[in-house]
Deep mutational scan, measured.
Amino acid sequence: MLYRITVRNADGEKLEIVVEMSEDEVRALAEELRKAGYEVRVEPIPEGEEP
């Protein structure tokens, strides 16, 4: 499935990426980023919607 991941650092800089991963993989990635001090938001992209 496609997911949009938005990551912000302490300075407020934002990075937005689209990935194709399983829900478990995305959850693990988000958890690791949060542990590293980043603010993370994950949104699933519905099938048929443009990323």
Rank of each mutant, 00 (worst) to 15 (best):
G12Q: 04
G48S: 13
D24Y: 13
E47F: 13
S22I: 10
E50K: 14
P51E: 08
R34M: 06
V40D: 00
E31H: 13
V7Y: 15
A36R: 15
V19K: 06
P51N: 09
V40I: 06
G37A: 02
R8W: 15
R34L: 05
D24C: 05
G12T: 03
E23V: 10
R41F: 08
Y38M: 04
K35R: 14
Y3R: 02
P46E: 09
A28F: 11
E20G: 05
E16T: 08
A28G: 08
E50H: 12
M1P: 02
E25K: 07
E43W: 08
D24R: 03
E31Y: 14
R27S: 07
N9A: 09
L33E: 00
K35N: 05
G12E: 02
E20S: 13
M21P: 00
E31A: 11
E49M: 11
K14A: 08
K35C: 03
A28D: 07
V7A: 14
E49V: 11
M1C: 04
R34F: 06
A10V: 06
V40C: 02
E32R: 15
V42P: 00
E47C: 03
E32S: 14
E20M: 13
E20W: 15
G37Q: 01
E43Q: 11
I45D: 06
T6R: 07
Y38D: 02
P46Y: 11
A10E: 04
V42L: 05
R41E: 07
M21I: 05
E32C: 15
P44W: 10
R4M: 04
M1L: 13
R41K: 08
D11S: 15
D11N: 11
E32F: 15
P51I: 06
E47L: 10
E31D: 06
I5H: 00
A30D: 01
G48W: 10
G12H: 04
P51L: 02
K14E: 12
A36L: 07
P46K: 13
L2C: 09
E31W: 15
T6N: 04
V40E: 00
E25F: 09
G48F: 11
E20K: 13
L2S: 07
T6S: 06
L29E: 01
E31I: 13
K14Y: 11
N9M: 13
E13R: 14
L15G: 06
V18F: 10
Y3N: 01
R41L: 07
G37R: 02
V7G: 11
E49D: 10
V18N: 04
V40A: 02
K14D: 08
L15S: 09
P44V: 14
E23F: 09
E25N: 13
V26H: 00
A28E: 04
R41H: 08
